[in-house]
Design a protein around this nucleic acid. Structure first.
Lengths: 175, 175
DNA sequence: AGGTGCATGTAACAGGTTACATGATTAA
DNA sequence: TTAATCATGTAACCTGTTACATGCACCT
């Protein structure tokens, strides 16, 4: 009944602003773009699309491809307004991190021997993120001059984290 | 029935390795140390302490202060082993971020006018984190030489983020 | 006498993941 | 023909937050 725009709803509206899409497409887009700072699963996307339609923010049209059912969604005027409203809202933005490596590092005085292993696992993780970001570089262009700002930030941050781990490992080695 | 160590369970064991504590103490400790990369609420801590006791990983002793009930927990041998086991586990560490500012930035082509506002809100948020970290600097020492590694990382990362926002705002101004 | 901090706890809710089920289409 | 991809969906589960309730102790 609530007509609040949920977190998942915002991603969906944003993704639909980039073009008409199915629920499946939206999931692919998220996985290729925002997932390192904002993930979403089918279990959220499909029910949320229904709710957004009930609220009149999106409109779904059945466009089967062959005998395979397929529903393509697009923003309504109200949906565009809701998206703009969110983007311009001065509300304190959500910022949440859950970093198990840092937690381990924090407690690693209880098991000093494992510190280097933790740092290596941490570095490996950020290297994987970096590799994934680089693999999707071409998708990170909005048809525009260079890669998107968030893609650049993701890469720069991951590189910084890898560097930090390296520096700490060097420190550890000295002792 | 499962004897898996849950995420909250790990924080609790770690915090208890730093000394005997009540559930309340653990929450205060988390809020003054790990909460920027790993949060926990009373709603998780109290039930989890019970579960950990059932599993034999912690032992609670009733130590009322005056007429006020109070249960102080400490690690058992099995608890210490479980903590070490987790710290040394090579399992892929959890790393999750939910950053609404980045999400807004990603979509801000749909409302280009709001980009500078988003960057300012983002900068303000990281500045708040930075201020909070600096306010707890003294707690960030384990009695040891300098502030803890994770505290240093938190500060350095926040500074880097503030810088990045600043640079982007300068870019924006040029155009 | 009243406010703050200590201390415990829970119920309702919100948000999200995983695993599963189904079946058509397309490229190898 | 068969594997991968397209496409939709849901039920069970897990994790975690918020809001609330309770009441003592201590300081002013």
């Amino acid at each position: 009944m609530s007509d609040e725009l949920t977190a998942t709803g915002r991603v969906i509206l944003g993704m639909l602003a980039l073009g008409k899409n199915t629920g499946y497409d939206i999931k692919q887009l998220v996985d290729k773009s925002t997932r390192h700072f904002w993930a979403a699963s089918y279990g959220q996307i499909y029910p949320e699309l229904r709710r957004l339609e009930e609220q009149g923010l999106v409109r779904g049209r059945s466009e089967p491809s062959g005998g395979r059912p397929r529903t393509v969604y697009e923003l309504t005027g109200a949906g565009e307004a809701a998206l703009r409203g969110w983007l311009e809202s001065p509300a304190e933005p959500i910022y949440e991190v859950r970093d198990e490596s840092m937690l381990k590092l924090f407690f690693s005085d209880s098991a000093p021997g494992s510190r280097a292993d933790i740092l290596r696992a941490m570095r490996a993780m950020h290297e994987r993120t970096l590799a994934q970001l680089r693999a999707i570089e071409q998708h990170a262009r909005a048809g525009s001059p260079g890669p998107s700002l968030t893609w650049q930030l993701g890469v720069a941050m991951s590189e910084w984290m890898v560097d930090w781990c390296e520096r700490q490992l060097a420190e550890q080695a000295k002792e």
